[in-house]
Design a protein around this nucleic acid. Sequence first.
RNA 1: GGGAGCUUAGCUCAGUUGGGAGAGCAACUGCCCUACAAGCAGUGGGUCACAGGUUCGAGCCCUGUAGCUCCCACCA
Length: 872
Amino acid sequence: MMEKTYNPKQFEDKLYKEWEEQGCFKAVRDDKKVPFTVMMPPPNITGQLHMGHAMDETLQDVIVRFKRMQGYCALWLPGTDHASIATEVKVVEQIKAEGLSKESLGREAFLERVWQWKDKYNARIVNQLKKLGSSCDWSRLTFTMDEKCSKAVREVFVNLYNKKLIYRGSRIINWCPCCKTALSDAEVNYSEEDGFFWHIKYPVEGEDAFLEVATTRPETMFGDTAVAVNPADGRYKRFIGKNVLLPVLNKPIPVVGDEHADMQFGTGCVKITPAHDPNDFEVGLRHNLPVVRVMNDDGTMNELAGEYCGLDRYDCRERLVEKLKQENLLVKVRPHVHNVGHCYRCGATVEPIVSKQWFVKMEKLARPAIDAVIDKKVTFVPERFAKIYYNWMENVKDWCISRQLWWGHRIPVWYCQDCGKEICAKVDPNICPVCGGKSLSQDEDVLDTWFSSALWPFSTLGFPEDTSDLEYFYPGDVLVTGYDIIFFWVARMIFSGLEHMRKVPFRDVLIHGLVRDEKGRKMSKSLGNGVDPLEVIEKYGADSLRFSLLQGVAPGNDTRYSDAKVEACANFMNKIWNASRFVISNVEGKTVKPISEVKLSHADKWIISRLQSAIRDVTLALNKFEFGIACQTMYDFMWSDFCDWYIELVKPVLYGGDEVKRAAAESVLTFVLQNALKLLHPFIPFVTDEIYRYIPGTNGTVMTQEFPRYNSKLTYKKDAQAFGGITEIIKAVRAAKTELDCPPSRKVSLYIVTESKRLISANQESILKLAGAKEINFITEAGEAGEKVVTKVVSLGTLYMPMGDLVDLEKEKIRLEGELEKVTAEIRRADGKLNNQGFVSKAPKKLIDEERAKLDKYIEMRQKIVNQLKTL
RNA sequence: GGGAGCUUAGCUCAGUUGGGAGAGCAACUGCCCUACAAGCAGUGGGUCACAGGUUCGAGCCCUGUAGCUCCCACCA
């Protein structure tokens, strides 16, 4: 016996455990099956899953369950990411609260702490994924710092190094003074900030003249090694080759002519600080300028800043400006809005700084990765995201992969203390291969997190070993992720797959939007508007949450989370629950015949036909990753067709005395419910499986059943369509009663003029029950129904309902006139179309025929209404 | 500076080969009818941002305009 109310808590955990124990999620190579591979984007171990994850995981789970039911060998490989910088920031915060620091702990002890952190959050994330119902293969759970991932990272690093695609060099990088590490370009977020333009005098050496330089960062002045003017700039041309004196330091620096100086912008004179600005760095290279770094790693000024040494960059700025003012070198200060880069993890203002770092040379890697998308070896869904990808890939600069952090994959490079040789090796070297020296020290830095993420599609399957899994499951089929990490991750997986596996890592990239809060804001910690998926599951159940994240969402679009939406979905779950309870209570303990062995009524055929449409539409939608459409289709089928119509239609049959008809109804109810549950299962796995087990004749879980297939033999086109006429009659009677304020409980008599007597007779009971009527009389003309009647014209004929005193003939006349007007408008519309030469000659024949049929129908209806009006 | 998305019912949003505008929530009316009041039946509500164009036909395709959001690049 099913419980009376839908209570997900009673079965969600139980079912998950069972699935897991029975090995339902396990993907083992099976050469009789076609593999279908989805690699879970490994969530960061920085915290717990948020709504965005919940959506991401749900989408993947739907796809995987769908494919698994379709008979694929479906692998959904789960994992978590060590998230180098993000996690390190978190753990540093944590130990700071204990009065400790990274440095005081030392590398080893610190890493010990991070591993503890990892264990805690990894477990939490796994638990959350399970709560959501994720059907991933837990036996393959991978952490990006697992042995196998480390091996893959080593392999790839060394290979790229040997191919000279990884190099070490001094370049301008983004430096986070707070995390004290280099960042890649992708890890910097720019935002507009109000700042100032300081106009500073640089006196010309040996002349009573000066160049006015405008800068937004005066404190970098100490690192100036030139002033640039445009060679075509008449104002300053003559100074090129001369020196100016750097204020405060009174150090002579040359004036150079360079296109970089924009004559229209600022004063036309640019201070050149190669060590602290990417453009200036380039200018410096062109003019062979020295690179003078004036800042320390923590954002304070170094000894080259003279008296400002040790000061924070902003304090230095303030004092320096003050000094310039005193020395009369400050011309003016103008407010200026400019874009400032921030660290994507801690938010601190990043400082472009010259630094010796490791880089991946992108040029050769990018081209094939671009071509792979052009050649459709990888397809972005929706397509528009390919553009974003191209744009980034085509302009990509070399990738800075070294991080001055402790948590992460250590760079596999050693330096010989004796001969200075740099050794890059897959296995830790003991002696220097050149001089045999034994004092080797490993590079202190770790790799960018995304370096290991980029290998995820194959490192998880055993690369660099030639494993059977790799052969079978690689490349993956679909990668599901948000548009925010196309650059970080998707792009890098594509070029890595091509470079190291010679094959793209996946066929489709399904990009989804962000989950926002009720007001459309991004969910974030600082706003405190995040909603914890676990809390929602606790309150409404995982199925409701899942459905709410899928429903009404267009591919790639952002969506809003709201409790109201989840509540509406919970109502749907409740609806499914109760409808199922109804069906099961009627068939429990019985042997139900297959529908092929019973005589089907019009209503039976109609609902089976509707089911076929639903199966077809859901399958089509899922194949195109249109989850919103799939949900809507199922919702309508389940709620409107099955519950509101079919179950109501079947009640008189079940409660009537005809055993044969009853048996047929039971067959159909069972058949439809069973199929509907299968159809719904990928979306709402828990409730469907819980119910499925109560259906007589089922054995075990629904998740291993075959996904329903559209069967054209079960569409019963003619009968199903004919049944539409019956529902029309029922609706007409209901509407008439409401219009007349007739209580639903009051049964009316129906008089019908029709040419479809047989059809209506066959469905008489349904009409009586659902319309709230007591009898149906077939008549040949209106008069037979009496005087005080309400008239409804429907496709199958004209309905008359004598309603006694409830009928106000005047009102009835007005109402009919209104209907006449509507029908006339329809006739005008159809007529206009059919009289349009263009339409008739160019529109598809099917459409024209349909339009003709409509016109005929409306003309007939108009005639009936006119006749009726005459009698009033 | 370049690019993308959005603008449809009071609210949140669907609407994918161009062929009579939809859902949920809210509102209104009436109903506890043995699956479900977390429900049932019925009703109202939209020049589909604006202006042009293509087409027999445009919410959908093209051009432009406005507002909002986002991404990339960047001005020292």
